[in-house]
Amino acid sequence: MSDKNPEKGEVSRRDFLGLAAIGTAVLSALGVLAGVLRIFKPDVHFEESKKFKIGKPEQFPVGTVKKFDDKKLFVFSDEDGFYAITAVCQHLGCIVYKTDWGFQCPCHGSKYDQMGNVIGGPAPRGLPWFKIEQLVDGSLVVDASKEVPKGTKYIYV
């Protein structure tokens, strides 16, 4: 059997059957494994929504910074519009605080400038900006699952 043209790479019927059987077994095992892994990820996480109302635009007078402690979020308002920057350090997830020159992380000393760009410390990336939307009733909604490029500011009525 195996001495039948092995150099040509031909496979005998029995070998094929064996290979196919084992292959199927491996495949099904992989499938089961994938299914098991999928169990660990529910369709919806049992936690607060990533989208949250922050209030009406009038509540953010031009030139103010508001920190939403529980949402780990800074909301800025300036002449050009509103923007939301996360307060979660991109290095290892500590909470940054605002300083005159930007943001400082207490855990490993990462520093960010006013725009959230890294200017020091180990953080691998800048603080992401989040999308702000406006609902029909006029209130602003931050979507912390959607990042926007730095410098994107939103102007609403």
């Binding site: 009406k56 009038e58 509540q59 007078p61 031009v62 030139g63």
Partner: peptide, 15 residues
Amino acid sequence: EGRKGTPMTSWKRTA
């Protein structure tokens, strides 16, 4: 409306 650039904040209902 308050005075921007000073500690005087905007005192209206929504602020």
